[in-house]
Design a protein around this nucleic acid. Structure first.
Lengths: 362, 362
DNA sequence: TTGTAAGCGTTATCAG
DNA sequence: CTGATAACGCTTACAA
């Protein structure tokens, strides 16, 4: 049902217009004048450099305080040829973005580091097209908007490594690049989650454990699939029950339909994310299966809904905030020319809920 | 199950370090020199101002092209006392953020406007505390990071209006402020969604239609509740079945438990968002109810999972991308001193799925 | 110990 | 129509 279109002109609540009026912010000249010294002296004094008498320094500080002077970021940026900002380009179809709890948490983690350092985060969101994505990085670099970028959602043979090199733009990758690019990267630990999931199912007695993978082309999709396969083999099982997904509900449903139609259908399915897992559960229920008795399901992400569907979803939680923090510490060190810090990621947590149980007849 | 901690140092894939090396970007002086004119002439020529001979202009353009010169954003920003960036502070507890499809879409819409204008979006994410939020705006303003900000998630007696006034920072509010602040604001149309939901349920024959509200204190929580109440009254029904939620699954579950325990329990519930609705459905199912026969449920947001739970959730979809676009057009006009544009919001869409039906015995 | 001046890269003004 | 020159706000050599 369509509602009438809302065609409106933004209104002003009062007469005031937003044009920035009034009170010029005080400059270093004002401080110098008030303290009765020169600009240079103020700069030296307030930056804690040696070369100015203590009494003078005190007088200057006092003047700065009364004028509530703050150094101009813009002037500083021009001088230093830096922007004191870091960038992030999120390139995903909107639907995939809406369901993913990763980015909000990751960004929150990033901020927690940047705020105290006086850095800002410039965010770019583009639909999945490579052209738009390339343009986005180009703009960031050419305008000098940012001093470095975070690379998330690594892809196989990711073109962005070459772009950054061309653009002479520093960056850190979150995850291990498929091909050895020339960029620093951060090891992640989400593979542990899949390992825990498979072990859990094996321990319950499952022998036919399927995997619904994420969108092909992503490094983490491949990595999760590999861990699933390795862990099965380590337990003497064949990793034959694989279906390709795409991280969407639709994709998860389709993959599940495919797996359930198999002559030797799985008794358990490990999904690359919660969205696909929940969609898969619905498909199984539609097919008349009782969960978890006839089919065990494990998701990945622990989205807020995971605990609130029926059966409640067994899944894996990783602390994306922590990843953001670690990535930010690394990128900051990189652009500041400091040595790479040691970063510690909070371990992945396997969360057992109600969607897994022993297989039928076990 | 805990995995081992990942304690690692970011590695370099190759020897190259990220420190920006090499090739100095060409300045306006280089162009002037190459074209054999002065800086000023270059500026005038390349900005399309009158006052330079066509031949000279062509020569200058040519020189700029060969040197692939681009005006320096930083120099421009210093001169213009602007940052050519807009800001957005998201202040929410992480869990609420992770489940909300609003922001990714909204930001995508914002970007679609900013990109073509050479503006950037600076994003700040803080946990829900007011102090952190205030500090965030203060920082944005004092550092001159942004020329204006978007105000989302409007609250009753929102303190941010006063902050922006104090900070002399332009902004537009998304939604109608509770008290008449002095800020331009954008009318939204999400109330239509609730209206459509109630009408749908009334048409199905429901008489006891409850509402689980969003977190109190938000303008849109109150607005949705009011629309629900008004629409019930317009149909000769009493809006007595209300339970306060908080937009989380937990809150939605608790509110649902409360409503279902009532002597006169509702036959239908309209929730302020999908997350609470889905959690509510699970509570109802746990209580032994058959959905939708014994309880109809309507959500709000149309999250990607809505179609993939069972029963598939009847809900309301609004185009947050469109809101972002409209908000960006308005804020850009505001900071550029242009007249406020006419903006058109795509209508809200009511999506009927399987979680609603006629009430028992109808 | 302090003041002066150059420079970062633009744009705008104002004589020539 | 052109081309110096000042200004934006700061840092840092260098001179006093």
């Amino acid at each position: 049902m369509h509602q009438d279109q809302l065609h409106t002109r933004p209104r002003h609540g009062a007469r005031t217009l937003g044009r920035r009026s009034g009170r010029r912010r005080s400059t270093i000249d004002d401080v110098a004048r008030l303290a009765g010294v020169s600009k240079g002296a103020v700069s030296i004094a307030l930056n804690g450099h040696p070369g100015v008498a203590d009494a003078t320094r005190a007088r200057i500080s006092e003047a700065a305080r009364t004028l509530s002077w703050r150094p101009s970021l813009r002037a500083h940026a021009l001088l230093a040829s830096r922007s004191f900002a870091l960038g992030m380009v999120i390139s995903r179809p909107p639907e995939l973005l809406a369901a993913d709890p990763f980015f909000p948490a990751f960004i929150a983690g990033v901020e927690s580091v940047l705020a105290s350092r006086g850095l800002a985060l410039v965010l770019q969101v583009v639909d999945g097209s490579p052209e738009a994505e390339a343009a986005s990085y180009r703009r960031l670099a050419h305008e000098g908007r940012v001093d470095g970028v975070f690379l998330t959602d690594l892809r196989i043979d990711d073109p962005r490594f070459a772009w950054l090199t061309d653009l002479d733009l520093p960056g850190v990758a979150i995850g291990r690049p498929s091909a050895g690019g020339s960029l620093p990267w951060l090891e992640t630990n989400d593979r542990e989650g899949i390992r825990a999931a498979v072990r859990h199912l094996v321990a319950l007695g499952h022998r036919r454990i399927a995997h619904v993978g994420g969108a092909p082309g992503y490094v983490h999709s491949v990595a999760r699939r590999r861990v699933w396969a390795d862990e099965l083999r380590a337990n003497g099982l064949q990793p034959s029950l694989f279906a390709e997904g795409d991280f969407t509900g639709e994709g998860g449903a389709a993959a599940t339909r495919h797996l359930l139609a198999l002559r030797q259908a799985p008794t358990a399915i490990v999904y690359a994310n919660d969205l696909m897992a929940i969609a898969g559960m619905s498909v199984a229920i539609d097919a008349g299966l009782t969960l978890p008795d006839e089919l065990s399901v494990v998701g990945f992400d622990d989205i807020p809904l995971a605990a609130h569907v029926r059966p409640a979803l067994t899944t894996v939680r990783r602390d994306a905030t922590d990843w953001g923090r670690a990535a930010a510490l690394s990128l900051v060190a990189l652009v500041e020319g400091e040595p790479m810090p040691d970063v510690t990621l909070t371990p992945v947590i396997f969360i057992e809920r109600a969607s897994t149980s022993a297989p039928p007849g076990a």
